[in-house]
Design a protein around this nucleic acid. Structure first.
Length: 658
DNA sequence: AGCACGCCGACT
DNA sequence: GTCGGCGTGCTC
């Protein structure tokens, strides 16, 4: 008798599969990875065949037969990968499997989408360019590793300054893999932000190229998935989810901008595409190449390096001027007087500038000058953001929005003060003062909707001269030779987050923005406005000195026992009822304290600010024994879920939080 | 997760 | 006497 072990596609933690089903003769050729509809109690559910067997431990009369086998299915390699992700990130088999299934299997909610607008920005530089010696050397080492040369590393860090031609190296590496009959995955931070790179890959690789990302319609994604699965295409470019692309014989995985935070998935399972890439590469015997100008300390320590120390155009990196905002004249507003002067020189020269401020909206706070009333979100413990154009106060954590008040609700005063500045305000200030030079704004509000991003970037590209102002989106991936000035306002805003990665995030942000300036013949400059001019990340980014920053950062992490000198696991509990949250957290903390390895530290429960009307708190584990800690956490939260006493409390686990 | 079963309080 | 609350258990 032939038996299929099926993992039902549900979200429940308490449900432990797999479940055995008897296969009728008509389904005798069912493979691992196929999606089946099965009777399950009184319901019918979809499930994935995770194993085939000759016999079941259960008596035959207790076994049911699948109702039907769907066309859809994932290769066995990806089924193993999905199940591994479910375990590794303390999620469920079902949630791990969902990641590897072809698009469209979830028959639940299907939202129709307008056709995709494929933005075309920048010059298509499509034929292979002649490589510099440093690029040649990097490609040679990658090719040697692809050919499995003795002692060749299986993972490499391509450390290249901004503009040093990393993409050319990736293209050469991908072509080398294809020449050897093997496929390649190229992970990029956010596909919508890098149409230039997609255009370039498509032009060079033609039919063998596929792209997978969320901006495609479901049908388009399903078609790209099918082309990869069938072997018609053998290179896949995409964001973090592309690590699950169904390539047949994977020989190479490239991770572009490996420091980028978007490689970490926010929802359950909180997977890290970089960690999955390492696992999948090792399983498939593929080579991993991680590239960036600003490596993470762990990559810097752990991976053998290939260096691209110079820009391909031979130009030096632009000089960086750090402006201390502590002594700045408040009348000049969020921009320092020297920043204004530099922008006026850009206007006079008919050139372009990029201004980055990492905060959406007009102003981040609204308060009453008479009684001190402050407007905050009714559902979240955060301040409401003034959006002047829409005339609304908006919460950036939930969907709450209310009309912008003209007078204070408590004291009727009409003197309301808007403190701080966001992109919308900076856009207005720039437009007023720099007219007639056009100002283009790019942030989460203007980039809403399909292709809006690309359209804004294309308009900036076409303009004779202009200023592009926006959030960190403006610092990513594109290449505008006419930009002679890039400025970052409030550069240390990210430093004020209570996060051990705050320094490296700030360093990467400043360094990436600095790399946007001076790519053309006119040269360029960079301005960094900050309240913390002597912070290590600001000083080293201003000097374009990643090694010096990383040397300090590695020592700091060693001293404080942060990754990679330990492993972190974060557990977040959420509940509407604060007492229930407290009870659940206390119970879980007690259970964990007894179960975790001896060297592990358990910190918390620590309260977090409320979001969407749900109270939250956090437990943090810091341990050398990663596997032991994950196993203990998995066991304890599964026990908590199985007991079902705290069904009103949700628990999510983030292994290696970023 | 669903969906049953089952054992206690307030209504026709 | 029953209708229905949600605690506990099961689903191949």
């Amino acid at each position: 008798m032939s038996i299929a072990r099926v993992e039902p596609l549900t979200t429940a933690r308490a449900l432990r599969g797999p479940f055995d089903y008897r296969l009728p003769a008509a389904m005798a050729d069912l493979e691992v990875g196929r999606v089946v509809r099965v009777p399950f109690g009184r319901q019918r559910v979809l499930g994935v065949v995770v194993e085939l067997a000759d016999a079941s431990e259960l008596p035959p009369e207790r076994l049911a037969e699948p109702l039907e086998a769907l066309e859809a299915g994932a290769p066995a390699e990806l089924v193993r990968l999905g199940l591994w992700v479910g375990r590794e990130y303390c999620s469920t088999p079902s949630r791990g499997l969902r990641l590897v299934l072809p698009p469209g299997v979830e028959v639940r909610k299907r939202r129709p989408r307008p056709p995709t607008v494929h933005g075309e920005v920048g010059r298509g530089a499509t034929a292979p360019t002649r490589l510099l010696p440093a690029q040649e050397a990097a490609v040679a080492r990658i090719v040697a590793a692809l050919d499995g040369a003795a002692e060749a590393p299986r993972e490499l860090l391509l450390h290249g300054v901004t503009g040093s031609g990393k993409t050319e190296v990736y293209l050469a590496a991908v072509e080398a893999a294809l020449d050897r009959g093997r496929g390649a995955i190229v992970l990029v931070p956010e596909i919508g932000l890098a149409p230039q790179a997609v255009t370039r890959f498509r032009a060079r690789l033609g039919d063998r190229f596929a792209v997978l990302h969320s901006a495609l319609t479901e049908a388009e994604r399903a078609e790209e998935w099918r082309r990869l699965h069938s072997g018609e295409a053998s290179v896949c470019v995409g964001p973090r989810s592309a690590i699950f692309a169904p390539l047949r014989d994977l020989g190479l995985i490239v991770i572009d901008e490996e420091h980028d935070a978007s490689y970490k998935q926010e929802g359950d399972p909180c997977y890290d595409a970089r960690a999955i890439a390492r696992h999948r590469a090792a399983e498939c015997g593929a080579l991993l190449v991680a590239g960036t100008a600003t490596p993470r300390p762990e990559s810097w320590l752990e991976l053998p390096r290939l260096e691209l120390p110079e820009r391909v155009d031979g130009r030096p990196l632009p000089p960086v001027r750090v402006l201390d905002m502590r002594g700045a004249d408040p009348r000049s507003g969020p921009l320092h007087s020297e920043t204004w002067e530099a922008l006026e020189r850009v206007r006079a020269a008919g050139a372009k500038a990029i201004v980055m401020i990492n905060r959406r909206g007009f102003a981040p706070w609204l308060t009453c000058r008479s009684c001190g009333r402050h407007w905050s979100c009714p559902n979240c413990d955060v301040s409401l953001i003034v959006h002047r154009h829409r005339e609304r106060l908006v919460c950036h954590h939930c969907a709450h929005a209310e009309p912008l008040p003209r007078a204070c609700r408590d004291c009727d005063s009409t003197t309301l003060s808007r403190a701080g500045a966001g992109t919308e305000q900076v856009e207005r200030l720039l437009a007023e003062r720099l007219a007639p030079m056009p100002v283009f704004r790019l942030d989460g509000d203007t980039a809403e909707g399909r292709g809006a991003h690309a359209r804004i970037l294309a308009a900036f590209e076409r303009a004779e001269s202009g200023v592009l102002v926006g959030t960190q989106m403006v610092a990513k991936g594109h290449d505008f030779p006419e930009v002679t000035l890039s400025a970052i306002l409030d550069a240390d805003a990210t430093l004020r987050f209570p996060d051990f990665r705050a320094a490296e995030r700030t360093f990467a942000m400043v360094a990436q923005l600095a790399g946007r300036s001076g790519r053309g013949t006119a040269g360029g400059g960079v301005i960094v406005q900050t309240l913390a001019p002597s912070a290590s990340s600001i000083v080293h980014a201003a000097a374009h000195d990643a090694p010096a920053f990383l040397a300090e950062e590695v020592e700091r992490r060693r001293a404080l026992r942060y990754p990679p000198f330990s492993h972190l696991t974060r557990i977040v509990l959420k509940a509407e009822s604060e007492p229930r949250l407290g009870q659940a957290a206390a119970e879980l903390a007690t259970a964990l304290a007894a179960a975790i390895p001896a060297d592990a530290d358990l910190l918390g429960p620590a309260p977090m600010f409320r979001v969407r009307n749900r109270h939250r708190c956090r437990l943090l584990l810091k341990a050398a024994d990663r596997e032991g800690t994950i196993a203990a956490v998995r066991e304890e939260i599964e026990r908590l879920a199985a007991a079902r006493a705290f069904r009103d409390v949700s628990v999510s686990v983030d292994v290696d939080p970023q």
